[in-house]
Amino acid sequence: MDHTELTVGDLVDLLSACDRTAPVRQAMNPFFPMAHRLAQVVQSVDETGQTVVYLAEGRDAGDTQLGHLPPDVAIELAWQSPVQAPPRRPRRAASGK
């Protein structure tokens, strides 16, 4: 199975449609969706000699994980299904004695 990776050019194209003043965050772990703050961009070479760009969190562990991913983002990523609240049952009338 071939997997096409997102390239730097693809990322630039996708980001060009976004608000330039918006902070950049990373969605991680589809089974426990969390939001993380990005702080670094590092270019390196992998074991095959291919140039790779890494987006990384900052060094301060208390400042990088921001909490749960908003449900609408997890749904858009297909990490969660849309959930509807169960139907409400009618309340029972109180019986006075």
Rank of each mutant, 00 (worst) to 15 (best):
53 V>F: 05
23 P>H: 11
61 A>P: 12
32 F>R: 08
47 E>Q: 07
74 A>T: 12
13 D>R: 13
14 L>E: 02
53 V>Y: 09
58 G>W: 03
18 C>D: 02
70 P>R: 00
37 R>F: 09
81 S>E: 10
48 T>D: 15
91 R>F: 03
5 E>C: 06
40 Q>K: 15
88 R>K: 05
53 V>C: 03
86 P>T: 13
48 T>R: 07
33 P>E: 00
96 G>F: 07
40 Q>V: 14
65 Q>H: 09
21 T>H: 00
71 P>W: 03
97 K>M: 06
90 P>Y: 07
59 R>H: 10
65 Q>D: 13
42 V>W: 10
95 S>H: 02
48 T>G: 13
30 P>E: 00
83 V>M: 07
44 S>I: 08
76 E>T: 09
95 S>D: 08
19 D>G: 06
10 D>M: 02
10 D>G: 09
88 R>E: 05
1 M>N: 10
22 A>C: 09
29 N>Y: 03
77 L>Y: 13
36 H>C: 14
85 A>D: 06
23 P>S: 01
15 L>C: 03
73 V>H: 10
7 T>R: 06
77 L>M: 10
33 P>A: 07
88 R>N: 03
49 G>N: 03
72 D>T: 02
30 P>C: 01
80 Q>N: 05
19 D>L: 03
75 I>A: 00
25 R>Y: 13
32 F>A: 04
24 V>I: 08
54 Y>K: 09
78 A>Q: 07
24 V>N: 00
15 L>Y: 01
41 V>L: 11
17 A>G: 14
25 R>A: 06
29 N>V: 01
62 G>L: 07
39 A>L: 09
64 T>Y: 05
44 S>A: 12
95 S>E: 15
69 L>Q: 01
50 Q>G: 02
2 D>N: 03
71 P>T: 09
62 G>K: 14
66 L>K: 05
64 T>L: 00
85 A>I: 02
73 V>M: 13
54 Y>T: 15
40 Q>I: 08
86 P>W: 01
93 A>V: 12
38 L>K: 05
12 V>S: 01
86 P>Q: 12
18 C>V: 00
32 F>N: 02
95 S>M: 05
21 T>S: 03
20 R>W: 11
12 V>E: 01
56 A>D: 14
27 A>H: 11
33 P>N: 04
4 T>S: 07
89 R>C: 14
15 L>Q: 01
22 A>L: 11
51 T>Q: 12
50 Q>W: 08
97 K>A: 13
40 Q>R: 15
51 T>L: 15
26 Q>L: 08
95 S>K: 12
92 R>E: 00
68 H>W: 10
79 W>C: 14
38 L>D: 05
79 W>G: 14
